[in-house]
Design a protein around this nucleic acid. Sequence first.
DNA 1: CGTTCTCTTGACTCATCTCAAATCTGGTGG
DNA 2: CCACCAGATTTGAGATGAGTCAAGAGAACG
Lengths: 249, 249
Amino acid sequence: MKHAPLIAQNHMRCADCPIRHKAVCAYCEPPELAKLDAMKSYRTFQAGETIVWAGEEVDVLGSVVSGVATLSRTLPDGRRQMVGLLLPSDFVGRPGRRTAPYDVVAANEVMICQFIKPKFETLVSKTPALERRLLDMTLDELDAAREWMLLLGRKTAREKIASLLVIIARRDAALNSTTVGDGLRFALPLTREAMSDYLGLTIETVSRQISALKKSGIIVLEDSRHVHVPDYGALLDEAGDDSDGGFIS
Amino acid sequence: MKHAPLIAQNHMRCADCPIRHKAVCAYCEPPELAKLDAMKSYRTFQAGETIVWAGEEVDVLGSVVSGVATLSRTLPDGRRQMVGLLLPSDFVGRPGRRTAPYDVVAANEVMICQFIKPKFETLVSKTPALERRLLDMTLDELDAAREWMLLLGRKTAREKIASLLVIIARRDAALNSTTVGDGLRFALPLTREAMSDYLGLTIETVSRQISALKKSGIIVLEDSRHVHVPDYGALLDEAGDDSDGGFIS
DNA sequence: CGTTCTCTTGACTCATCTCAAATCTGGTGG
DNA sequence: CCACCAGATTTGAGATGAGTCAAGAGAACG
């Protein structure tokens, strides 16, 4: 069920950090970085482990270094909706808030660069570079949330699936900068269940729509977690957005 | 179709402003406020008027002083989803961005305290109080957006309507602090169409579910825009959230 | 008093959900 | 290496909630 956890590299220097230029610390200069360095530690969570429970006291505040975590809300009768996806460089926890409004769950094995909450909050309030970066990141998250609302409220099941694949493909391309020779090829980092929570569908509908896209030749499944997209434009059309797409992620 | 517009009070002092303590300027001290005062002007928009067009150059940046505006995204085939509701003190426009990602439309007559964009951006980057306030406001908007995602993705039509009524009732109660003698009574500030855009439904479904809630005795309609809720708890139950409700708005 | 817009209601359709079962997968223990 | 098991995924059949199309009832306006 699990692999050996990554060794928590408690001595990695910020300068060597893979998310140095995208995380909260992106706008920091060396002196500020040194202060962060002094209050940080690395912590890993296994796939499926809950990092923060909705309604509980938050004790994790920091940046996702590797892995994928999900944010979700649950209704009393068990219906669940994912409301955010945290990727490397994304920030977990809201400074200045004691309890969390949603569950944060590790989808993968997740490593977090964690800060000591009161110290971090004090530093933020004295460091405009941190505050500005946090603002920019939050505005980007808000845009993503609103794009997602359009998907939830108005797209068909097929469009939802295609949109999700586009998002994952984009992210993957940005990360690996693979050339687009004969199409794209990427891994789905989410289970069918996680996809259904993301898209506001049932697991069966997710599965059916993936099969339908396969039947239409829009995607080719290598196995249930690896997708090949021969014609990216065709996938974009299925997503229903304007073909130029705009800024889904 | 329209009333005489409010006189644009170009000489209102910030100290007298009704949203002084809730808007971007909330954390500002008098010297900073003076700088804002020097670059602001008031501008009004009629009900139905588009304040910002999605994809176009933004020329409005400022705070809603009075009235209600909606943010919405539209798919190429015309499907529309509201993604935000701007109330007095909310901020319009993202500093540092040239084009807008969504339409901003006045639902009512709206008055905006508008800033000159480049000047405002410069001031923000030199004024931590502004930046911090903008961050807090954006985080609140993000929470609201995520609550909304739960509604869009997982609630039934009836629950969506009940939730919307709860949100409006809360806001109204907060504004007018009416006592809850024999229930609540409030006006719907949105047309059926706006509600359907908000909730990801059709106008017919909105109408039918309102009728159904009426038939169940959960609400009493005085006319199509005025609602009486005899038992607020019963309405909360219909909304599907935990009975204590949490923090929908 | 028509004209127009908003809202309601009805009849029917269809996309998605629900319930159920089959298949596939990776991991376990013998 | 193989049989078996638990979880993940796919597929099928039928139910149903919300959408579509269409018409009628109110309300606002000139």
